[in-house]
Design a protein around this nucleic acid. Structure first.
Lengths: 129, 129
DNA sequence: ATTATCTTTGATCATATGTTCATATATAAT
DNA sequence: ATTATATATGAACATATGATCAAAGATAAT
């Protein structure tokens, strides 16, 4: 096999050889790609759903708004740990809080979050429908 | 404040005092909670969406099925790294593969995955609608 | 059969993550 | 003002995670 053939799938890109089979698909993907900052925020949002403890809290919040100590009792964690996680969930707009005196009531931020939870549950229960 | 008052929100549960404000909500949450095994799978599925590299790959797969080396070229990672991540995505039924000779074409597993991506993107772009 | 191409796998390592403990803040009650 | 309640924050530590490198399968071509 001569050198031309050997490198038929190697395309010079930014001074280094990168192998690819469908150049047009790679270019199209690059065109369509969302800005990196959005990608980071978006992946961080999913990551916040991607922990058993936080997910358990979120699933419970589908039915009722709950305060920190309730969530701690429910999850079996310390209130500190729950508070830490709620803060991260709040930073990504997955939950919101409402104050009533000393008590802070947490609930799902909006219907997007509910949908993400519903679809995720459906997916793991019926992977092929 | 006498001892009765001091412990009004402390309920003996499994031999240790746990503070909670809404016992009925905690009990209801426990009743409604999905099995732990499902919770683990579900959170792992979101976790797989929760990494910039994997998410970038998945977003690209919305438009086209792509092979490993294309995805490597697109992401700027080694083919090995891409393959590792694709395997994890496949384990959670987020992508599927189709063989054509030596080339393996990856695509989103089903419409659940597309929906999860659409809603996630909508959420970070319009946090309040 | 041998070689090339495309992809996968296992080990390794630096970084990221979740929990706990100690402490601080905020609101309410005495 | 002082004390109690409810929550938040920062530091620390053990574990989990993602990328790389080296090597191995798997399919196709010669």
């Amino acid at each position: 096999m001569d050198e031309k053939n050997q490198f038929q799938n190697r395309i010079n890109k930014d001074l280094c050889n990168v192998r690819m089979i469908h150049l047009e698909r790679v270019l199209y993907a690059k065109q369509q790609a969302i800005p990196f900052k959005e990608l980071e925020v978006m992946s961080m949002m999913y990551k916040m759903l991607g922990d058993p403890t936080r997910l358990k809290m979120l699933m419970a919040l589908r039915d009722n708004e709950m305060c920190v100590c309730d969530l701690a009792a429910f999850t079996g964690l310390t209130e500190s740990a729950v508070s830490h996680q709620l803060r991260r969930l709040r930073d990504l707009a997955l939950v919101k809080k409402r104050r009533a005196g000393q008590v802070l009531y947490y609930s799902l931020d909006d219907e997007h979050v509910e949908e993400l939870l519903e679809i995720g549950l459906a997916h793991i229960r019926d992977p092929y429908t």
